[in-house]
Design a binder for these strands. Structure first.
Ligand SMILES: [Mn+2]
Ligand SMILES: [Mn+2]
Ligand SMILES: [Zn+2]
Ligand SMILES: [Zn+2]
Lengths: 153, 153
DNA sequence: ATAATAATGAAAATCATTATCAATATAATT
DNA sequence: AATTATATTGATAATGATTTTCATTATTAT
């Protein structure tokens, strides 16, 4: 376990404290690459720290989102999902199966795509004077499994 | 006013009726290019048809979404937003100001972008056997107005 | 130590959305 | 036209996710 990491500094620099609940939540994300709901985070945290309450989990998720240590997604199923922000990866592409709700990461954009996005960003700056912080692409469709199950008719 | 339009047929073909509330909601979208929340739709409908209830608006929004006559978006502010589906336009790109919440349409993708997306789709089909129905791109950042207001520090 | 401030947990409150259910409207059948 | 079956509606209650409240506890500054 390394000393005060990345996240520690980012919080402290803005006057927040890296408390036990906050560390616990961050640990969950470090161990878990998935797109966790608040409730899922709560349960996972709860295994090691039964004392930590759901409200604190929500508060922590909001804080970490503001600090950009995690990213918040909504895939249209009525609950938000969170994922650790990578220092390196800046692209958040997801395939969402509209049948079973499965979410697949697609984090390997081609050169061509990266170029294309940069181009769009340029256009947005020029046209709308809009300063882009981040972007998400959601692809909606039918996953492999669901195609096999229902492809009949 | 033309006869039974596009939307009429699409509903009837699947056994649904094009009732007054449903027409009223569709009219709102035809007159209003924005990204309306359910409540906004309700208020706008209410001006002409005070009898139509909020529950029916929600039901209608869900139905029209399933029929793909409108599209549903969630920009992370806790409520869903809806927009008329165009027969032609198949791209739904939005700029979301994380400061003021403003949503700007960006519906003029370049050739290059279109190509790039097609390429990605191909990759997704190959790699994940995922069949894509639609996609959305959300750009998050700071709009022109908010840059001017807060750009100082 | 002491005082000031931030963070927490439990519970209540809020907000958007959905489900229930009796009443009404529409379509199909006689 | 009358009758039956089916779909839709409005009002209201219920739900589920998230936020707020508030008294208590932990952390930091003095
Ligand atoms: Mn992901
Ligand atoms: Mn739009
Ligand atoms: Zn699936
Ligand atoms: Zn703005």
């Amino acid at each position: 376990m390394p000393g005060p990491p990345w996240s520690h500094q980012r919080l402290r620099n803005r006057g927040f404290r890296l408390t036990l609940p906050r560390q616990a939540v961050l640990n969950i994300f470090n161990q878990n690459p998935r797109h966790l709901t608040a409730e899922e985070v709560f349960f996972l945290v709860h295994r090691n720290y039964p004392g930590i309450g759901l409200a604190t989990v929500y508060r922590t998720l909001n804080l970490l989102t503001q600090m950009r240590l995690i990213h918040k997604f909504n895939f249209g199923d009525g609950r938000n999902r969170y994922e650790l922000a990578s220092k390196f990866k800046k692209k958040y592409h997801h395939l969402v199966c509209v049948q079973c709700g499965k979410i697949i990461d697609y984090d390997s954009p081609t050169e061509k795509e990266a170029d294309s996005i940069k181009e769009i960003e340029k256009e947005l700056v020029n046209k709308y004077k809009f300063k882009i912080n981040s972007y998400q692409i959601h692809f909606y469709g039918i996953c492999k499994d669901c195609q096999n199950k229902q492809g009949g008719e």
